[in-house]
Design a protein around this nucleic acid. Structure first.
Lengths: 142, 142, 142, 142
DNA sequence: GTGGTCTAGACCACT
DNA sequence: GTGGTCTAGACCACC
């Protein structure tokens, strides 16, 4: 379910956060689903429990999961994060558009690309999203 | 020309790189223009020359500038970086689209947002790009 | 009568204690009223009897209830806890006032806010108190 | 400047956060003042640097300080936190009022107490605030 | 068993 | 020297 990439320069805990964020946003994990315990996931990934702990706390802060002491961690409902996520991603989208214009790309070309991408999602139901996301700024190998 | 923000979580050298990247991509600095010497810029910004040095090395690695020993640093032509930059940003764009779909946004709405953004650039000739870029993933001003 | 919120960061037994405290302070439960047995309440809430047991012990320690072996748990009279509770809350009130002054709020504004709040209680006869209390320091619902 | 109380049941890092919060809100520490380095404070208090680290990260998250890698931690301007703090403390204030009403205290008495407290601040310029705060809910000795 | 906190000690990136 | 991350191992409170 989760896998970490040691060639990625981002800290491990951030990779874990990002991965769960994806799984939750894309609906693979639904409201009130239980996610692996701190210890179990730490063993699975062969990393220290503290690192997972940090990731889970961040996820909680972001409103993606809630924690019940002595029971485990569970995913929150969409209402807790959908709005924030949408505005953030929209902001990213706009920034990309600006940059592409600066890079000399035609406005029409950008709109077309987006339209094509939207259609691709409508058909394939979003198979490229997971892989695509690993190519984001910040994940450059060291 | 360059200014650094100590409340920005990114390292200073990265801010310098990013700023020059913008100036070059947006055409404020043109091919073969000379950029400030390491020493001068360091004095201007009241920071350590090593930091500037590191930034310039990174800019050279990315193909934005070239160094002539004893003479200074100069801006490279668009051909050196345009393609790479474009494909990278396009990838980001697609990822954003996928995520917005997952977040439940309508495809039409996304296309409209992009079209609006394109127009905004066409009019203002891109005055928002600089500010926009500071909102990228990772810049998290405290 | 009692309900627990798993998204609340406080331990369950503390939520139970707090809820009974409210019911008793507000007079919903009167002196010598019998409260549910440990077993029954545990079944009602689908939680471990040990947790209820711990809550009742705490309530007894605080002087809100007394236990009669073999018969059950009963509410104490106001004289057992009113004074302590009042001085504690008064202290909290004063601290808040000091902080608001430090934060630059005008003394008049503070007094006005309090007067308004007092009136609100007088009318609604305190329907807001229950909800209000869940916003205390430490309850941080996720 | 900072001192921790091992009899307090709150975690150490939280005590550190709370103490700095006070110092900053009350104006003892002003905008852009440098606070002790993670390591130095850890040595001073004879506790582990990680614990201080956690406290500082929390303070940053709350908008009280900002961090510059390689340089240290500095306090933010009032604009970063004043509004949030005020609304939070106001909420606490209202809750206290509700509880006091429930406890049978007269509305007039509450208003009078507040008025008196406000005056005390105006004269003594707030000498009781620091001590008072240590008596808050949650700091009960174990 | 579960999460939360803490210690001790280490390495890295940045200035 | 400064903060940021990670490991290993421990103890506690809660369920």
């Amino acid at each position: 379910m989760i896998q970490i990439n040691y060639q990625d320069k981002r800290p491990i805990y951030e990779q874990v956060v990002e991965r769960f964020r994806q799984l939750i946003v894309k609906g693979v994990l639904s409201e009130d689903d239980k996610i692996p315990s701190v210890r179990n996931l730490a063993i699975d990934l062969s990393i220290n429990p503290n690192t997972i702990q940090k990731a889970y706390q961040e996820l909680e802060r972001l409103g993606f999961i809630y924690t019940v002491k002595g029971r485990g961690n569970f995913v929150c409902g969409r209402d807790r994060w959908m709005e924030d996520e949408t505005t953030e991603v929209l902001q990213q989208l706009k920034t990309c558009v600006h940059e592409l214009i600066s890079l000399g790309m035609q406005g029409d070309g950008i709109v077309d690309t987006v339209r094509t991408e939207v259609k691709k999602c409508a058909n394939g139901k979003d198979d490229a999203a997971a892989a695509g996301d690993y190519n984001r700024k910040g994940s450059d190998a060291t």
